[in-house]
């Protein structure tokens, strides 16, 4: 128990003292995971909507891929992205290896199937006749999609929370493609692993409290938004 208390006190001390490195790591964590969540939202929501509503040959294959992708191991994603961005890899010329951009790409790959799968599931819970009703009311294709998004907004918010929670907590992909470079690509999860490896448990614990604080704050804000919309 002493460990936990000491870790919590040290976390508060680091935050209150304005420790530059901790703040830099926390901001990079937020930036990388926030951007990855945003991109996965832009890719995953249309993908989920289309898969839920459309019928075409090979749809089951794609849906299976999305569902399997929801459980993609971050380390495997990290390995594949690293192979592509490696100096001699097919995308090596971009020079993205060990950069925050590569971390955003890897995290986007992790979060997109989750956002797409949860969006698809939310749309499939709507009555299929509701789609016909919206069309019958005279909706253009754009109006149709907008109304469907509005109708499943709570499900989409849940998808955002799940996607953000998954990427901010992952360590394997960030380590593989970001390299945990100090002041450049070090995020909270990779720092925690580093401190544990160094035997610096109290600092690792303090960083874990910071990570939990960030994750909880963002998720809480999204939850408030979700519940307020539910009551509206």
């Amino acid at each position: 128990m002493d460990f936990l208390v000491q870790g919590f006190i040290q976390a508060l001390r680091l935050l209150l003292a304005g420790d530059k490195e901790v703040y830099s790591i926390a901001f990079l964590t937020l930036k990388v995971s926030g951007l990855a969540t945003l991109v996965s939202l832009l890719l995953g929501v249309p993908m989920g909507l289309y898969l839920a509503v459309s019928r075409f040959r090979g749809r089951e294959f794609l849906v299976g891929g999305v569902n399997a992708g929801m459980g993609l191991p971050p380390t495997v994603v990290g390995l594949w992205v690293a192979l592509f961005f490696w100096r001699r890899g097919p995308l090596g010329f971009l020079g993205l290896m060990y950069t925050p951009t590569a971390m955003v790409i890897a995290q986007t790959i992790i979060a997109t199937p989750l956002v797409a799968g949860l969006t698809m599931s939310a749309v499939q819970q709507l009555s299929p006749k509701l789609r016909l009703q919206i069309l019958a009311l005279g909706a253009s294709p754009l109006q149709f999609w907008w109304l469907i998004i509005k109708e499943v907004r709570l499900g989409i918010l849940a998808a955002v929370m799940a996607g953000f929670g998954r990427v901010i907590a992952e360590v394997g992909a960030s380590m593989a493609v970001g390299g945990n470079v100090r002041w450049y690509s070090r995020v909270l999860t990779t720092s925690i692993v580093l401190e544990v490896n160094k035997g610096n448990f109290s600092l690792a614990l303090a960083l874990s409290f910071v990570l939990l604080l960030i994750t909880y704050s963002i998720t809480y804000l999204l939850t408030v938004l979700q519940q307020r919309r539910r009551q509206a």
């Binding site: 006749k129 509701l130 009703q133 909706a139 109006q143 109708e151």
Partner: peptide, 29 residues
Amino acid sequence: RRQLAVVFQEPLLLDSSVLENAALGLKLR
């Protein structure tokens, strides 16, 4: 379609106020 109207067995209302639902078709048109 914008000159017709359809009522199904289920009311198929959207998650908004009754008035907004009743005015929805007009707004879409």
